[in-house]
């Protein structure tokens, strides 16, 4: 019996598989986190429910029948009953979900766009840019959010903005008010990164600022952005619900989970017609919990210091 010599020359070894990119590793770690995967599944189901669900409904959003269908309890035709105008609650719930999720997503996207850009500029250029941007951030953080939102809501009502368009203003307001957290995080991250030797290397190589920021610094801040954004979506959904519940966010007839719960304001609806307010409440709860589970999972998966 003879032993074959193992190939020692590096060039004879065939490269195995795809390169094991940091993203691939993160995905693998995420899928090993059971709670996070459950959260993701719930969120997917929720999104399908809101986006695809309405197509299967035999009813129409604008269809109402106060005479015959007012305040029906859940039954075979209307699974979640009807409201005081005789509208199908299930259909309204699904369409409300579209609005609530969309507001959450777009508001967060706006926050990130503003926050990440300003944070990166502050962290990279430091000195003057840093001082100005971070002082503006301080001002925004010092603003009491709720009164401002209420005032904005009142202004929108006063200007008689159509309910359809109010949604967009709401996204913008929530987004603009929320950029500071992400700006601070991105700035902090970039301040640490720029002291690393690989950033000194980019300086020694004479790379342009553009490449340094977008190719070297930003990709390293994406994990933190993803995590904050995920948790931010949950926060924005809650904020939207709260405002809509108070009647200054999304206003009827456009449904949102928040303004659907408003029916719990009336004692009769609260005691006798729980099908009006329990389902949207549950939807908010489930969605926010699912998003938070995903956010935690992403944090664990993307943080290289938490290697398991």
């Amino acid at each position: 019996m003879s032993l074959e010599a193992a190939p020692l020359d590096m060039k004879t070894q065939v490269p195995a598989k795809q390169p094991d990119s940091p993203w691939r590793i993160a995905i693998r770690r995420f899928t090993r986190n059971r709670l996070a995967v459950i959260g993701l599944l719930i969120l997917v189901v929720m999104v399908l429910f809101c986006v695809v669900g309405p197509w299967f409904s035999p009813y129409d959003l604008l269809e109402y029948d106060v005479k015959n269908k007012k305040n029906l309890a859940p039954n075979a035709e209307h699974w979640l009953g009807t409201d005081k105008l005789g509208r199908d609650t299930l259909l309204r719930l699904m369409l409300a979900g579209r609005i609530s999720l969309l507001v959450g997503l777009v508001a967060t996207a706006i926050s990130i766009l503003i926050g990440a850009t300003l944070g990166a500029l502050a962290g990279f250029y430091r000195r003057f840019a840093d001082t100005i941007i971070m002082r503006i951030a301080d001002v925004f953080m010092a603003l009491p959010t709720l009164p401002i939102l209420i005032i904005m809501g009142a202004i929108l009502s006063d200007l008689k903005v159509e309910p359809k368009h109010r949604v967009y203003f709401l996204m913008l307001i929530l987004g603009v008010l929320g950029w500071t957290t992400i700006a601070r995080l991105v700035r902090g991250q970039i301040l640490t990164l720029r002291e690393q030797e690989f950033m000194q290397a980019t300086e020694a190589l004479g790379l342009r600022d553009r490449r340094k920021i977008f190719r070297h610094l930003m990709p390293n801040t994406i994990p933190i952005i993803i995590v904050t954004a995920t948790l931010g979506v949950a926060g924005a959904i809650i904020a939207e619900s709260a405002l809509s519940f108070l009647g200054i966010g999304v206003v009827p007839p456009t449904p949102s989970w928040g303004n659907m719960i408003t029916s719990a304001n009336s004692l009769i609806d609260f005691r006798r017609r729980p099908w009006l307010w329990i389902p949207p409440g549950m939807c908010i709860l489930i969605t926010v919990v699912a998003i938070n589970l995903i956010g935690d999972g992403l944090r664990d998966a993307l943080d290289p210091k938490m290697k398991k």
Partner: peptide
């Protein structure tokens, strides 16, 4: 330091 002198994402 050969570890910190290369950007882990490039």
């Amino acid at each position: 330091d050969p570890f910190s002198s290369l950007n882990p994402r490039i």
